[in-house]
Simulated scan of single mutants.
Amino acid sequence: MSIDPSSIPSFGSPQPPQGGQPGGGPAGPPPVVVPDQALVGQLLDQMQLKHLVDDEGDLTAPWDGFRVYYMFRGEQKELFAVRAFYDRAYPIEDKHEILDLLDEWNRETLWPKVYTHTHEDGVVRLIGESQMIVGTGVNLDYFVTTTANWTQAAVGFEQWIVERLGLQKEIEGEPGEPEGETPDEG
Rank of each mutant, 00 (worst) to 15 (best):
L49W: 06
E177Y: 14
F72V: 11
T60S: 04
L79D: 00
N139V: 08
Y86Q: 04
D184F: 04
E120T: 08
V162N: 10
Q168R: 15
L59M: 02
P22C: 03
E179H: 03
D4L: 07
R125I: 00
G57M: 07
H96F: 07
R125M: 03
R107E: 15
G74T: 07
N106A: 07
L110K: 14
L44Y: 07
V134A: 05
P91M: 04
G20C: 12
D36Q: 10
G176M: 03
F143V: 05
T146I: 03
Q76N: 12
K50Y: 09
V162M: 10
M132A: 05
L165N: 08
F80P: 01
K77S: 15
V123T: 15
G57W: 11
A154H: 07
E158M: 12
P16K: 06
G135W: 09
S130T: 12
F143K: 11
Q18D: 14
P178R: 12
Q168D: 04
D184V: 09
L43G: 00
S2M: 12
F157S: 00
F66R: 00
E108Y: 04
P26V: 08
E97W: 15
D87T: 10
V114W: 01
S2L: 10
P14C: 00
L52N: 06
E181M: 07
Q15F: 04
E185Y: 09
H119C: 02
T109K: 11
M132W: 14
P183F: 09
L165E: 12
G25K: 07
E129H: 12
G65D: 01
T116Y: 01
W150Q: 08
P16F: 06
A38K: 13
L79W: 06
V155Q: 09
F72W: 11
